[in-house]
Simulated assay, not measured.
Amino acid sequence: MTEGTRRWRLALGRYAKDNLGGLGGQDQKMDQALDYLYAREYDQRGLERDRGAGSLDPTQMQALTWLGKAKGLFPNTVFETLQGHALDRYGLTDLLKDPKTLESLEPNQDLLKVLLGYHDRADPAIRAKLREVADKIIRDIMERLRHDVMRAFSGRRNRFRRSNIPSAANFDWRNTLRENLKTYDPETSRIIAQTLRFNSREKRKLPWTVVLCVDQSGSMTDSVIHSAVMAAILCGLPGITVKMVLFDTSIIDVSDKLTDPLDTLLSVQLGGGTNIGRAVTYCEDFIQDPERTVFALISDFAEGASPRTLYAALARMAEARVRMVGLVALDDQSAPYFDGTIAGRAADLGMHVGAMTPNKFADWLAEIMT
């Protein structure tokens, strides 16, 4: 199937299957997502639509699941159009107008993304309930991530000090083998371990400043959510100062809201252009002790302005020996889309660039804060 035929097939929907052929893989999922939304045209025109075995009949849960899946299937500009049609043209927001319906929904991150996008549109009477549901989802995410962060910051293993506290995480297998070689049993080909060795753990030398510079464009919603949660957790650690800005072409400094991730997320204005260089330059003002500062840029690196300002700011930070990391995705999936040219240039300037799950990001922070 040519690219032109594929596009027509997606535009015309499943009724073009006989003439243009079927779809598979990701294209099939896109076709189902489009059909779920736009088949409502038949209902509005009073026509009977085909509800075959493969149809996606609307239910409360499917509407919200659809929004989450569609966001991952389509480019941001396309998804914004689909979401606008879903909320305004086809009235799917009715699901979010009844507090009883909200109570019956399963709280999850896909629902949180929908609530964040809908909060400003909601009737004043329903906003409190939306906030209550969103707050519960965020608390669940925080509890899941807090353990990973606290584990990472509990101290790194010190192989030059011994510990009498047995722990699988601290087990020193090299020295255990070395000290028990004399108990080797040739008949069973086994070492009878009479003495076990464990590494001790060091406390980290703080303070540090962590600066989170977060792209709030629509494609980064999952990363924005996890950034807000990570910021709240890091704020609770002794000796760590956290600063955070959200940006598109404008900049929102949310450093005074970080203890409440929901307040941070309600400051998000998804969509718009992107001026990364301006945001990074703004963040330079947070850097008081460069060698004790971590700068984390969470972005798809799709710079809308000239990248020269961005490159210059990163070069200044690198020269000052700021620890820099560029996260093209900070979520559980770590399936990023990003501008490889600009990200590659950032890496050449000394920035560690990659996609990370939140627990890996915590490990990375803990590793360098020694």
Rank of each mutant, 00 (worst) to 15 (best):
G350I: 04
A329F: 03
A335K: 13
R321K: 15
P336N: 06
Q333R: 15
D332G: 12
V325S: 09
R345F: 09
R321L: 08
T341N: 14
V328Y: 01
V325A: 15
G326R: 01
G350R: 06
V325K: 11
V322E: 02
A329Q: 04
F338H: 12
A335D: 12
A335I: 11
D348Q: 15
A318Y: 09
D332Y: 13
R321A: 10
Q333I: 14
I342K: 10
M324D: 07
D331M: 02
R323V: 08
R323Y: 10
A343S: 09
T341E: 15
D339M: 03
R323D: 09
D331W: 01
G344P: 07
V325W: 07
T341W: 08
G326H: 03
R323F: 12
V322L: 06
L349M: 04
A347V: 06
V322P: 03
I342G: 08
S334K: 15
L330G: 01
R321T: 07
D348T: 13
Y337W: 09
E319V: 09
L330I: 09
G326Q: 03
D339A: 11
P336F: 06
V322G: 04
P336A: 05
A343L: 02
A320W: 03
M317G: 00
P336G: 02
R323K: 11
A347I: 05
R345C: 06
D332N: 13
A318N: 15
E319N: 10
V322A: 04
D331N: 15
E319P: 03
D348M: 13
Y337E: 13
L330S: 05
G326M: 02
E319R: 12
G340S: 13
D339F: 01
P336D: 07
G344D: 08
G350A: 05
A318P: 06
R345L: 08
D332F: 09
A318F: 11
S334P: 01
T341S: 14
E319Y: 12
D332S: 14
R321C: 07
Q333V: 14
V328K: 01
G350K: 07
R323N: 09
D348A: 11
Y337L: 10
G340E: 15
F338I: 11
R345H: 13
R321N: 09
Y337N: 14
R321V: 04
P336M: 05
